[in-house]
Each structure stands twice: as structure tokens, then as C-alpha cells.
Measured scan of single mutants.
Amino acid sequence: TTVKLGDIKVTFDNPEKAKKYAQKLAKIYQLTVHVHGDTIHVK
């Protein structure tokens, strides 16, 4: 599962960890989390 934020891409083996990371980023940057299959976009 890949978390994308602009040019930053972080890949996790564990989808749950990816989701938590995405939510953490979203909170920090006051953005929202969008899940598209294996990719989680923070924008």
C-alpha cells in the first residue's frame, strides 16, 4: 500500500499502518485521505 502526498511516496507492507500514517499526515497538514485501491492519497 502506497501513501502519496505531493511528490512524497511511502510504501507499506501493512495496509493498516499505511492508513494510520496517512491519517497522521492528513492531521498535520490539515488535508483529507482518499483511498484508491492500493494507493492512499493525502490531499
Rank of each mutant, 00 (worst) to 15 (best):
A22V: 06
G6Q: 04
H41T: 13
P15A: 11
K9E: 13
T39G: 03
A26M: 04
K9A: 10
H36L: 13
Q23C: 15
V42H: 01
E16Y: 07
Q30F: 10
Q23N: 10
D7Y: 15
L5H: 07
Q30L: 06
P15R: 09
N14H: 08
G6Y: 08
K20H: 09
L31G: 09
P15V: 11
K20W: 11
L5K: 02
G6P: 02
K19S: 06
T32S: 10
V3S: 03
L5R: 03
H36P: 00
Y21A: 05
K9G: 05
K27L: 10
L31P: 02
D38W: 08
Y21I: 06
I28C: 15
D13E: 10
V10T: 04
V35K: 05
F12Q: 00
A26Q: 03
K4S: 08
V35S: 05
Q23L: 11
F12C: 11
V42Y: 03
G37N: 06
A22E: 02
K27V: 07
T11R: 13
V35M: 09
K9V: 13
K20A: 12
Q30A: 09
K43L: 14
V33Q: 01
T2P: 03
A22K: 01
V35A: 06
G6T: 04
G37W: 06
I28W: 11
G6R: 08
Q23P: 01
T11L: 13
H34M: 12
L5N: 03
G37D: 05
K17A: 14
N14K: 04
V42M: 08
K20N: 09
H34T: 12
N14F: 05
V3G: 02
V42K: 01
I8C: 15
L25A: 00
H34G: 04
V42E: 01
T11E: 07
V33T: 04
Y21V: 06
K19I: 14
P15T: 06
L25T: 00
K17I: 11
K24G: 06
H34Y: 12
A18Y: 01
K19M: 15
T32C: 14
K20Y: 09
V33N: 00
F12G: 00
I28G: 01
T11F: 14
A22D: 00
L25C: 12
G6C: 15
E16R: 07
F12Y: 01
K9N: 09
D7C: 15
K20I: 10
E16L: 09
K9W: 14
L25M: 07
Y21K: 02
G37M: 05
A22N: 01
H36S: 13
Q30P: 04
T32L: 08
